[in-house]
Design a protein around this nucleic acid. Sequence first.
DNA 1: AACTTTTTTCGACTCTCAGTCGATTTTTTT
DNA 2: AAAAAAATCGACTGAGAGTCGAAAAAAGTT
Lengths: 197, 197
Amino acid sequence: MKKGERRKQELLEIAYKMFLSKGYENTSVDDIIAEAGIAKGTYYYYFPSKEQTLEEVIDLMLDKETERAKAILASDYPIEQKLVGVIASFRPDEAEMTIKDALHEQENLLMHEKIKNKLMERLVPLVCEVAEQGVREGKFCCDNIPERVKMIIILSNEVFDSDNYTETDIKVFIDTIERMLYAKPGSMAFVAQLVRK
Amino acid sequence: MKKGERRKQELLEIAYKMFLSKGYENTSVDDIIAEAGIAKGTYYYYFPSKEQTLEEVIDLMLDKETERAKAILASDYPIEQKLVGVIASFRPDEAEMTIKDALHEQENLLMHEKIKNKLMERLVPLVCEVAEQGVREGKFCCDNIPERVKMIIILSNEVFDSDNYTETDIKVFIDTIERMLYAKPGSMAFVAQLVRK
DNA sequence: AACTTTTTTCGACTCTCAGTCGATTTTTTT
DNA sequence: AAAAAAATCGACTGAGAGTCGAAAAAAGTT
């Protein structure tokens, strides 16, 4: 009654690696079971569908990232840095994502979409906390925090998602979030160092 | 030497309708050829792949919308209205898109993505023209127009794409574009009437 | 008209892949 | 040891995209 749990973890591990290295669409269930050395039926004993596997793989990924974000939230960095830090916690994990996701977007649309949605669900409330803290401290000065935060995250997702963003994109992005939050001009300028790479 | 052209248009027409009503993924090539009353081989005589058909269907859609946008651009409405009008030209064509695209996003991801990309390509330069005109007239006051415009379009896409945006989303969106363009506060307030429906 | 060439059409076939299912083996419970 | 539950197996199905060589239709040539 626990051998099953181990097998499931093993399958998630394999799926995770293959989805990242070859892309979701390019990884067939047959690929996964070949790698695991099991039969089709066994796979479907643990997952109702390939898509559900994806779902669980993503949740697993985001769990780690949520932890990181919460650590930053609990820290005592200045608000501006917290804000950016929490958002950045969810940036793809080094070489992991970047390998394939960036490249052949076509083959990863579903994965990408699911990540974006799940990420949004988790990230918005965390960033809202930071932003509200910022308002209390007088660093930001606006209402409708959740909506503003949502839009900031949308922008950060879409703009920095591809690899072809420019210096100017960064500059404008920073200016935009400063103005959206009614923060002191220049207070977010430090972000430029972090994003550029 | 022109019967072929007619057939191709016919196929695009059929594909267009079916993609919109049933979704791209849910429309098989077999569905299309059944509707057209032709054989598989004939279809592939005109299109190298189902995806290429999608590509051409979308281009066709966007052609119409580009015309509308250009008409507005050439008009002499006030800048603020032009800006919004041009962007709104690319909103899905009444009942057309809304039918299915909004609903089962899952089945339409590729279509959605392609529309977004192609739309961006066409819309950004048009909106830039308006914005630059606005700067010349002193209505807006900022540099890096293309980047700002891109972000505005991203926001309008993502925020108003789903049907569950709120009054507050609209308010914040308006505030954001005013501030991104350094426009007079309230100068864009009229948008609220248009978006609400 | 008789032919040749080009364009268009046909549909059976292949290949890939997700998912099913009943049978069998392994593990746990009693 | 027997019964029950959990885990595994792999052949099979069904759907759907794309291929290909052959045939029919249309256009061009003499």
